[in-house]
Amino acid sequence: MILIELLQAVLLLAGVGFFLVGTLGILRFPDVYTRVHALTKADNLGLGLIVFGLLLGADSVPVALKLLLVWGLALIASATAGYLVARAARRRGVRPWRARNWEKG
């Protein structure tokens, strides 16, 4: 039992960490497109880890399914919102930020 609780703690803390990194990404990344990258991907993983951590402690099937439903809906919402923000920026002619030492790999 203690092992499961330990694993739960690790997953929850890792999830919170990814949320934090996603927020840090908004502050550090240079333009709207890269910021959308940071938010969608880091928060998807952060929420996934938190949901997985809570699943280990779920005491009934509907509760477990509810957690998965929350994650699924959040995934669809964040991917859709990310696309809409990027498309709106593109339509307004926001030019993507480019690294100064840009090289083609």
Binding site: F18, V21, G22, L24, G25, A38, A42, R98, E103, G105
Partner: peptide, 14 residues
């Protein structure tokens, strides 16, 4: 994305 965010040199080539 976490690796890129936390790296001091911010390795991006968008």
């Amino acid at each position: 994305v976490a690796r890129r965010t936390l790296s001091p040199s911010l390795p991006l080539q968008p």
